[in-house]
Amino acid sequence: MTNPGTVLRIPHLQDSLVYVALFQSVKNSSFLRQQLIEGNTTYEYAFLDASTILSTTHVLAACFRAINDATANRLRTRNVHSEIVFALSPNNNIAESFRRFGVADETTSLLAIKVIPTTGTAAGDSSATDAIATHLRGAVEGEPAPFTDEAFAGLSDVTRIRKLYKAPAPGSSRKKTGVNGTSSSLQELKSLESIIIGSMAIKGS
């Protein structure tokens, strides 16, 4: 039974089990979106449009924020899954965050995230995540992809992401070079990631 997803070990959130699964060439986005709208209880996931995701760190930051706020009783949305989608947004408009980052009818690459409490044993955790994996494999019509930065690099629409986070375009007059050296595209992506994670961290203040 190949497990298409990954269990994330998020430091300091040891009470939560975070299961993520990335899919490309997804055919049934409309259907999946419909399940969320109808509040179908077998579909309690965060379904993200992976083209809006820059990297694994981007996902981790959203998960941390959502889970931490859930634990502190500070959810602004219905549950931790909707909160993950909301956490991605740099502003406080909930509906807009779903429109921008959540699965849309046109979504072709999908990131599914599920958060459950840890069971207390390795075996228990294992069978819980297996169950999630099984459900997703059946529910999502698409090809599993590994949860890695390389995979996201192939799927992300960086121009769109820059726009969503109002980050300056590379080579624009606002960008300055490092004190010691010059800008490279790897550095540019790192810079963009810092802007994104930082904006997410201060959102809601």
Partner: peptide, 14 residues
């Protein structure tokens, strides 16, 4: 960070 000045990145805050 937005202005391209190198400082420690903010990873999370509460």
């Amino acid at each position: 960070a937005r202005e391209g000045v190198r400082v420690p990145a903010v990873l999370g805050a509460d």
